[in-house]
Design a protein around this nucleic acid. Structure first.
Lengths: 144, 144
DNA sequence: TATTGTTATACTCTATAACTATA
DNA sequence: TATAGTTATAGAGTATAACAATA
């Protein structure tokens, strides 16, 4: 079997292609793909703490500090102390953040479409469902 | 749409899971997944130059220097000047390298099976074929 | 002039450990 | 004692530019 046909190689290169296209488009908004992911998560899950985000997006909490630091520094996210547990923050997206999200979602759509152009809609759904099922079992295992 | 359902997120996390399992198993052989990929490519394509490998595996030629340096330093790969073009090397796998390949292929198989356990054989084939088709179009575009 | 390989360098991303403040 | 967040630090991986040797 050729290296280039292994699952690891294929997954890595397709992901790379998708992220590089997305990052290119995001440059005008001064953020990268990971930072956009955090922003999008906080929008969908308002009131999340940094730990909440880091667990859901499977990144370390120290890495999350950098992401939130950056997003706060350019005014896209707001930190407020949680009055019920003053160790943690309540995160929220600012109005500037909403603007960025609106444009970013279009860029994400464009980037995904560009990479997946070869597949019809049904095939794209199949791909997503297969990946979702795989990730579902991985999460279970890692929580055991 | 949730961030965790985007193609980029799914591809990245599944790839990460696969690579981390493979790297864990490879530790006994003192190489990582990328280095194994180079070794496997040279075995399948004997007489390749560093440029050949770097183009086929889509990595920079300066990165390839590091990989080949390392594999040569632990005696898994051999560099010989190409008599027909003395700028380039003819790469080949040593007998030690073959031993590592033999065990590494088992580890790769185990790692992939572990991550893909949720999918039946047909679904695994579907996944691979979809990824192959996507990567096929990406390559074409980037060569234009 | 172009290509193969190399080196020096710097940049990005992330993880580890030790710390603080709160619970 | 445990948890949320922070900081300092170091490590892995990669990319860029300039270079030598060869074509």
């Amino acid at each position: 079997m050729e290296v280039q046909d292994s699952y690891g190689f294929l997954l890595a290169k397709v992901e790379e292609a998708m992220e590089s296209r997305f990052v290119e488009r995001l440059k005008g908004l001064n953020i990268n793909a990971k930072q956009f992911g955090v922003l999008q998560y906080v929008e969908k899950n308002p009131g999340s703490s940094q730990i909440d985000v880091s667990k859901s997006l499977l990144v370390d909490r120290t890495t999350m500090v950098s992401h939130v630091d950056f997003l706060e520094s350019i005014g896209l996210i707001k930190r407020e102390r949680n009055p019920n547990d003053r160790r943690s923050f309540v995160l929220s997206v600012t109005t500037d953040g909403e603007q960025v999200l609106q444009r970013g979602r279009d860029y994400l759509q464009e980037s995904e479409s560009n990479v997946l152009a070869e597949l019809n809609e049904q095939e794209q759904d199949t791909l997503k469902n297969l990946l979702l099922r795989i990730l579902g079992t991985i999460r279970k295992e890692e929580n055991e």
